[in-house]
Amino acid sequence: MAQPPPATMRAIAIRDGGWRFEEVPVPVPGPDQVLVRTHAAALNRADLLVLDGSYTVNPALAAREQPIAGMDGMGEVAAVGKRVPTTSVGDRVMYMATSAFADFIAIDHRLLMPVPLTLSAVQAAATPSAAITEYDALIVQGGLREGQHVLVLGAATGVGVLATQIAHYAGAATVIGSSTDPVKRTRLDRYGVHVAIDTRRPDWAATVLDATGGHGADLVIDHLGGNALVQALSATAVGGTIVHLGHLAGRHAEIDLDQLGRRRVRLIGSTFRTRTREELFAIAAETASALRPALTEGAIAPAVDRVFPFSQAEYAAAYLTSGQAFGKVVLDFA
């Protein structure tokens, strides 16, 4: 028999532009929610941007009004609301939702993704946001088709590593990934990358053209922005698509609109910050269904760089900020 939840729990509250450990009440799930006992939670760069006010969380993802940090988690269902149709106490689930940095989270059951038995708690915690973001960018927004050439800018990030694998799994003919770190570039081939490039080199767009027989990338997934996005236009195939997701290299870019039009490139901006609850429910369900076989078989797996105890969350944030991580940084709640 499952152990009932306690009255209070540990949580990382967002206070005065920083994180603070607090003891707060365990949430009571509503009729459409489940209560999840957290086993692990992953850090995202967005967690850090929230602190300086440069990232606004979608209210549709909010698990509670109290400002608790975290957007990615995994755990075991501890209680179920009366209108939840299929989820049961004891189920292993992962999710993209706010308030993940706490011992318990009450979350709408339609945001849950089942955890394959082949994934550990740490791996599962590192999966939801990256999988949903990159599946949506590649398949839904980008319309990736088998045999196309894909370029992932920022491929060594937690989301980038999932993007390259999803592209490979979906049948991309060529997967090109970027990193400015030479050691990280040597690791990308384990995650579906055929050609690794350094966007600090002025000729990197030419390398993409060479790798694709002069064709260019049919689909570019851009986590960098800035000048990398400008240069990506030269690396994109005529009639190709760029899906812009992040701006690690800068929030502003001066684009040659003549080049954009001449090459007939579609430039799509994508985020979950402005999507409705129904849209979030739909993409979570579609991603879970489409990627479950690959996750179960191990064809797709997150790269976890380091695991920190929950009590050392601030050290984990500092490590992520340092830029050393290849893939995800995860908090262990054991």
Results as ranks from 00 to 15, higher is better:
Leu112Glu: 02
Leu112Arg: 11
Val115Ser: 00
Val115Pro: 00
Pro116Arg: 12
Thr118Asp: 05
Leu119Tyr: 03
Leu119Gln: 13
Leu119Asn: 01
Leu119Ile: 07
Leu119Arg: 02
Ser120Asn: 00
Ala121Pro: 08
Ala121Tyr: 10
Val122Cys: 09
Val122Asp: 05
Gln123His: 02
Ala124Asn: 03
Ala124Pro: 01
Thr127Trp: 08
Pro128Thr: 03
Pro128Val: 10
Pro128Trp: 04
Ser129His: 13
Ser129Phe: 11
Ser129Tyr: 13
Ala130Tyr: 09
Ala130Cys: 08
Ala131Asn: 06
Ala131Trp: 01
Ala131His: 04
Thr133Asp: 04
Glu134Val: 13
Glu134Tyr: 03
Glu134Ile: 04
Tyr135Phe: 15
Tyr135Pro: 03
Leu138Ile: 02
Ile139Tyr: 08
Val140Leu: 12
Val140Gln: 14
Val140Ala: 14
Gly142His: 08
Gly143Lys: 08
Glu146Ala: 15
Glu146Cys: 13
Gly147Thr: 11
Gln148His: 05
Gln148Glu: 15
His149Ala: 11
His149Trp: 00
Ala155Thr: 06
Val161Ser: 12
Leu162Ile: 13
Ala163Leu: 09
Ala163Val: 10
Ala163Cys: 05
Gln165Asn: 04
Gln165Phe: 01
His168Tyr: 04
Tyr169Gly: 01
Tyr169Lys: 00
Tyr169Phe: 10
Ala170Trp: 08
Ala172Asn: 10
Ala172His: 06
Ala173Leu: 10
Thr174Phe: 00
Thr174Leu: 00
Ile176Arg: 05
Ile176Tyr: 01
Ile176Glu: 06
Ser178Tyr: 07
Ser178Trp: 05
Ser179Pro: 05
Ser179Glu: 05
Val183Asn: 01
Arg185Ile: 02
Arg185Ser: 00
Leu188Lys: 01
Asp189Cys: 03
Arg190Thr: 00
Tyr191Val: 07
Gly192Glu: 03
Val195Trp: 01
Val195Leu: 07
Val195Tyr: 09
Val195Ser: 05
Ala196Ser: 13
Ala196His: 02
Ile197Phe: 09
Ile197Pro: 03
Ile197Ser: 09
Asp198Asn: 02
Asp198Arg: 06
Arg200His: 14
Arg201His: 14
Arg201Ala: 15
Arg201Ile: 00
Pro202Lys: 15
Pro202Met: 08
Asp203Arg: 11
Asp203Val: 03
Trp204Gly: 07
Trp204Tyr: 09
Ala205Leu: 10
Ala206Gly: 05
Val208Phe: 14
Ala211Asn: 07
Ala211His: 04
Thr212Lys: 12
Gly213Asp: 13
Gly213Val: 14
Gly214Asp: 09
His215Leu: 09
His215Arg: 14
Gly216Cys: 12
Ala217Gly: 11
Ala217Lys: 11
Asp218Tyr: 07
Leu219Cys: 13
Leu219Lys: 10
Val220Pro: 02
Ile221Asp: 12
Ile221Lys: 09
Ile221Val: 15
Asp222Leu: 11
Asp222Arg: 06
Leu224Lys: 07
Gly225Thr: 08
Asn227Ile: 00
Ala228Thr: 13
Ala228Trp: 04
Ala228Ser: 12
Ala228Gln: 15
Val230Ser: 12
Gln231Ala: 14
Ala232Lys: 07
Ala232Asn: 13
Ala232Gln: 12
Leu233Arg: 04
Ser234Asp: 15
Ser234Phe: 11
Ala235Tyr: 05
Ala235Arg: 08
Ala235Pro: 04
Thr236Met: 08
Thr236Ile: 09
Ala237Asp: 06
Val238Ile: 14
